[in-house]
Design a protein around this nucleic acid. Structure first.
Length: 409
RNA sequence: CGGGGUGUAGUAUAGUGGUAGUACGUGUGCUUUGGGAGCAUAUAGUCGCGGUUCGAUUCCGCGCACCCCGACCA
């Protein structure tokens, strides 16, 4: 991608109608565009980041047997009436169709996924199975806030698992937990993300959240540093010690909920009459689990914890581009390097604009790609380019012929 | 949904009951070139509707939008 072709631009100042740090930087750097409260457009650079987060999630969920599907966002009222949530789900966006029927915009998809899987699964031989989607969710929050951390429209990966019994659900639940941590590891959040005990549903005492420690978070968690788990403040009265070791000296921190997994049991299979036949031909209800994770919120979280005064600092897996190639009035030589990087399948954004050095270097910092490569008269005089990591102050000179090897060796 | 705040050019900001200013941006020309450069010139604005007034961007009322706190929530 050539910056001269990119239709977005960076702003010199933070937009004044946002105080949320993630929204300010992302808007200033041209990653997102605000349409209304809690409603954002993902611009080319922001969409690349979002897609990278989704890619990581897909890879890890596929690896635990999740089968990707895509359910509708527009969902008829009748499905929600079956579980009683048409009336009880406050945040549901309800609307009327031209046929004068009622619909809801999907806020979560248990009501859709359950009958869908039900039409295909009848026997214990068909279980366990798990399906997921990455889709836009709608929740009519009374107050959206904090940029990407709480919008009325946001992206979510929602995985649903279906089992014959509690034991196989429990086993899959553990597997999903591990997959979640792999995802957070790849997204650079592992060290500050804690498995957190939270209020459960009807079926289990607790649900589990994944909470990333961050001052911008809305939740308070109480961390057991011995076990590396936490307890959500919302249940601290009934569970004031570490559930694993009983430690009562917990450390309170603000945190962002970056994932949530539930044992649903028969909460949804029962109202839909989703049963299976076991080995003896006996009809039994299917046992379900659900596993949520919001890529857009995670994107905001990464910004909150990974930035400096210069702007964004993307972990390599999610950066819009790996290399930010800057030509300081040396486009002829830099064009060749740009071709070479592209041929080597190294994702590169090339600042070929006719601008001063200051503006180019500042915008490179702002956009936050992991490696900045500068080509100037000075570096070319030594047959080299200058490479600087976004996370480092040091620069190194690398010979033109060695540029590709810098990453591929 | 309760409470508070803010709406002036694309962005960030001054100011005023009497022709709305600055910076950046954008256009043009020239200069400059390793941390958002300089000169010249042009471009572009008072959230909406009512009211008070000779005259409202300013005062008043009602809307609308956005932000923050709370409640609620991935």
């Amino acid at each position: 991608m050539r910056l001269s072709q990119l239709f977005t631009r960076t702003l010199k100042e933070n937009p004044k109608d946002e105080t949320s740090l993630n929204a300010q930087i992302l808007m200033r750097a041209g990653f997102i565009d605000k349409i209304g409260a809690g409603i954002y457009t993902f611009l080319p650079l922001g969409l690349r980041v979002h897609n990278n987060i989704c890619r990581v999630i897909r890879e890890e969920i596929d690896a635990i047997g999740g089968q990707e599907i895509l359910m509708p966002a527009l969902t008829p009222k009748e499905y929600w009436q079956i579980t009683g949530r048409w009336e009880n789900f406050d945040a549901l966006f309800r609307l009327k169709g031209g046929d004068n029927r009622d619909y809801a915009l999907g806020a979560t998809h248990e009501e859709i996924v359950t009958p869908t899987v039900q039409r295909h699964v009848f026997s214990y031989k068909d279980l366990s199975t798990a399906v997921y989607q990455i889709q836009t969710k709608f929740r009519n929050e009374l107050r959206s806030k904090a940029g990407l951390l709480r919008g009325r429209e946001f992206s979510m990966k929602d995985l649903y698992s279906f089992h014959t019994d509690q034991k196989t659900l429990d086993a899959y639940y553990e597997i999903a937990q591990k997959a979640y941590f792999k995802i957070y590891e790849r997204l650079g959040l592992l060290d500050i993300t804690f498995l957190t005990y939270a209020s459960g549903g009807a079926f289990s005492k607790y649900s589990h959240e994944f909470q990333t420690v961050c001052d911008a978070g809305e939740d308070t968690i109480h961390i057991c540093d011995k076990c590396k788990v936490a307890v959500n403040q919302e249940i601290i009265e009934e569970q004031s010690a570490c559930p694993l070791c009983g430690n009562v000296e917990l450390r309170a921190e603000k945190a962002i909920e970056v994932g949530n997994i539930f044992k649903l049991g028969t909460r949804f299979s029962e109202p839909f009459g989703f049963n299976y036949l076991d080995e003896s031909g006996t009809e039994k209800p299917v046992i379900m689990g659900c596993y949520g994770m919001g890529p857009s919120r995670i994107m905001g979280t990464i910004v909150e914890i990974s930035h400096d005064d210069g702007g964004l600092i993307w972990p390599e897996e999610v950066a819009p581009f790996k290399v930010h190639l800057v030509s300081l009035r040396q486009n002829e030589a830099t064009d060749l390097l740009y071709d070479r990087l592209q041929k080597a399948k190294i994702e590169v954004i090339y600042d070929d604009r006719d601008l001063g050095a200051g503006e180019k270097l500042v915008s490179a910092d702002l956009m936050g790609c992991p490696y900045r490569v500068v080509v100037s008269a000075k570096t070319l005089a030594e047959g080299s380019v200058e490479i600087k990591k976004r996370t480092s102050q040091e620069v190194e000179l690398v010979k033109l012929g060695e540029l590709i090897n810098y990453w591929t060796k």
